[in-house]
Computed example of a mutant assay.
Amino acid sequence: MKKIKTALLSYGMSGKVFHAPFLTLHQGFELMGAWERSKKLIQQDYPTVKSYDSLDELLADEVDLVVVNTPIDTHFDYTKQVLLAGKHALVEKAFTTTAAQAEALQQLAQEKGLKLTVYQNRRWDSDLKTVKKVLEDGVLGEIVEAEIRFDRYNPALSPKLWKESDNAGAGVLMDLGSHLIDQALYLFGYPQAVFADIRRLRENSQIDDNIDILLYYTDKRVRLHAGFFNREMTPSYVLQGRKGTFLKHRADVQEDTLKTGAKPNLTDWGTEPPEKAGLLYTEINGQVLRQTVPTQQGNYYDLFEGVYQSITQNVPEPVTAAEGLQVMHVIEAAMRSSQTKQVVQL
């Protein structure tokens, strides 16, 4: 099996929790190390890898793939340098801070013949995979309305100052919103127009922390919401079809399990507790049914398998730059809509 030599651009929570465990699990990747600016931590977990002192040092090494997992407002500059150095790139969400930046990176990757993947790992959550299967099974009939939420109860400001400072990459729209928008486009395609209400609700907040976005389609409406004042969680996925309804809470266990230091596997990883199953209330073959739906198994490993196949077999990336660009177009439209209080056509 061909080994893809891979390096991370940071080893904070993202590198330690979401990337390194899967890169070391997948036999097709060789973790080379991470760029560490101050704290040198990666060798405590992986003694044989390198701790790079600079991006130039990392790019000068025999690295095939670089994971750009730094703050959002650095994505464009770092990814551009990675591509110009002839390396493939896996870029954290949000892809960039503007659609123009996303398009420039897409064009550069095409010119260089390199793979450019956006890390939208939530497509491989157990929740979303279950919703996708319900839609594919057609048990709800034609979908007329859908809602996707990413809610938390956490009124306090984050101690990570870069997350709370007023910069182009900060805010819930870029953070959780990029997940919500990607999931909506993944499930329902590109909308015709956007209406959004984006606010700052936490005390002393400098960034947007509450978003409500309405996506317009010819045959349905899709609402997206994220905020920090939801002590009692409502279902994160609500699908309303002409035949019935499907409700599913956000219950994927992968992030919480990874944070404990547990390592992923290829057997029972990403298995939700049975009591978290979604509720289906619909009519099938003339019979009205109200029952739970077994949850699909989640596994972020499949994203990395897609990256591996895209590089070694020259097939499309699991999340393409074109898809990342579409998300950025919707984000920019949501910003304009909230500012003008008008519907923005796409």
Results as ranks from 00 to 15, higher is better:
242 R>F: 00
207 I>N: 07
124 W>K: 05
31 L>E: 12
137 D>M: 09
91 V>E: 06
204 N>L: 06
8 L>Y: 05
309 Q>D: 13
284 I>Y: 01
286 G>I: 03
145 E>S: 13
213 I>L: 08
171 G>L: 01
179 H>G: 08
174 M>L: 12
194 V>A: 02
212 D>S: 15
99 A>E: 13
27 Q>W: 01
144 V>G: 08
146 A>P: 02
330 V>W: 07
103 E>F: 03
34 A>M: 05
185 L>C: 13
7 A>N: 07
240 Q>L: 10
50 K>V: 08
237 Y>G: 03
67 V>P: 01
224 L>A: 08
200 R>H: 07
197 D>A: 14
126 S>H: 09
307 V>I: 15
203 E>C: 07
331 I>K: 04
178 S>C: 11
80 K>I: 02
156 A>T: 03
326 Q>E: 14
159 P>C: 06
91 V>S: 11
130 T>C: 09
328 M>S: 10
148 I>R: 01
287 Q>Y: 03
342 Q>E: 15
333 A>D: 13
309 Q>A: 15
297 Q>W: 01
141 G>K: 07
49 V>Q: 02
133 K>E: 12
176 L>M: 10
121 N>C: 01
340 T>V: 01
337 S>C: 09
274 P>Y: 06
255 E>H: 08
149 R>G: 04
102 A>M: 04
54 S>D: 05
306 G>E: 05
101 Q>T: 07
42 I>T: 03
198 I>Q: 11
253 V>H: 07
309 Q>K: 15
336 R>K: 15
44 Q>A: 14
197 D>I: 15
164 E>D: 06
114 L>Y: 05
230 N>F: 01
6 T>C: 10
316 P>E: 09
19 H>G: 03
168 A>R: 06
267 T>Y: 09
321 A>K: 14
278 G>E: 01
7 A>T: 02
69 N>V: 07
123 R>N: 08
78 Y>M: 10
231 R>G: 00
92 E>H: 12
